[in-house]
């Protein structure tokens, strides 16, 4: 399915990118149909740019240092017409045509049926993710999106407060999330993996930290995962986790957060029903560990300055311990399905 880019392109790419490691968020390391098409376009454009730049530099060089005959040719108004009008007119017509054709093929991709529907709402400064469960019940999550490989996924994009922009470079272009409007984006992952996305429209405060991950998994795994994710949270098994649960409810966490199956039904903050199965907490670079959970609860303003969750510094270490145990226990699904 994936065709390898030509050798020259690969060489040029590796020279450009050098040893600059990571490609989880790179336009030039496509993992989906849309991003692959655009990456081809990008390389085409770079080639076009290199040729034109070379022509201009050569013309300047010849104008200064060239032989009298060449300089005489360059000095004519005809040279201005040929190089300044005719040449760009032809090349730009071709480029425009190709660009429009590419848009057309993106549109055609959007028309394919039986896609997976996922709604993502940009909020200051996190992502509310809602899947549509097997029987149509909404399944809420946050900051982590799971998608099946090889199936078109339609993202319904909205904004809760200010403008955000949904962007997963490895899968395709970005689309703005604008209050009062609903946008759609069709992406198709071609290989399993973890792709990073980030808010691309400045949204104030910790905009820089508003990232998320897209986990592309085999279609069967995805279906099984969604099946499990639909279920409410289980009652905690351990004593400490049960203490954590009552603390969670007593401290008022439920005013903002939902844990399905309990009385916590707040919708201001992320849904925590299966938080124990997520990869990170608060920001995507903070792995979900007991220690980081506690830090986010007590010291969130240092991790993500300006985020809307107050710091719960009144909680004592044993209480935090219990709370963390409870939250980590909230996973009816295990990560690898």
């Amino acid at each position: 399915m994936r065709r390898a880019p030509s050798l020259g392109v690969v060489l040029a790419g590796s020279v450009l990118l050098g040893s600059c490691g990571s490609d989880v968020q790179s336009v030039l390391a496509p993992g989906g149909i849309q991003s692959r098409q655009i990456a081809y376009l990008a390389w085409l454009l770079f080639g076009f740019g290199a040729v034109v730049l070379t022509i201009v530099i050569a013309a300047v060089w010849l104008a200064i240092r060239g032989s009298p005959r060449i300089r005489g040719l360059l000095a004519q108004e005809n040279a201005v017409i040929a190089l300044g009008i005719a040449f760009p007119a032809v090349t730009l017509t071709l480029l425009l045509g190709y660009g429009v054709w590419l848009m057309r093929s993106h549109l055609d991709l959007s028309h394919t049926r039986d896609a997976v529907d996922i709604e993502v709402v940009g909020e200051q400064w996190w992502w509310r993710v809602t899947y549509s469960g097997a029987d149509g019940t909404p399944v809420a999550s946050a900051n982590e999106i799971r998608i099946p490989v090889g199936m078109p996924v339609t993202f319904t994009l909205k904004a809760a407060d200010v403008i955000h922009s949904f962007w997963v470079p490895s899968l395709g272009g970005k689309v703005d999330m604008i209050p009062g409007r609903t946008a759609r984006l069709r992406l198709t992952a071609e290989r399993p993996g973890i792709y990073r996305g980030q808010c691309a429209e400045y949204c104030g405060g910790p905009h820089a930290l508003m990232a998320f991950e897209v986990v592309a998994m085999p279609a069967a795994d995805y279906a099984a995962w969604l099946q499990r994710a639909t279920r409410p949270a289980t009652t905690p098994a351990s004593e400490i986790a049960r203490r954590g649960q009552s603390l969670f409810l007593a401290t008022g966490c439920g005013a903002c957060h939902t844990v399905r199956g309990t009385s916590a039904a707040g919708t201001l903050g992320p849904d925590l029903t299966h938080i124990g199965a997520r990869r990170s907490i608060g920001i995507d670079t903070l792995p979900l560990t007991r220690e980081n959970l506690v830090r986010f609860i007590t010291d969130g303003q240092h991790i993500k300055p300006g985020n809307l969750m107050p710091e719960f510094r009144v909680l004592q270490p044993p209480e935090l311990e219990a709370l963390a145990s409870y939250l980590l226990s909230l996973k009816v699904t295990d990560r690898h399905g």
Binding site: L96, G97, M103, R104, L107, R184
Partner: peptide, 19 residues
């Protein structure tokens, strides 16, 4: 004239109102 032609070119390829 070139500008007019370029503006018109996409109407031949792209459907109206498609997002």
């Amino acid at each position: 004239a070139l500008g007019v032609v370029w503006t018109t070119l996409p109407t031949a390829v792209l459907p109206a109102c498609a997002l």
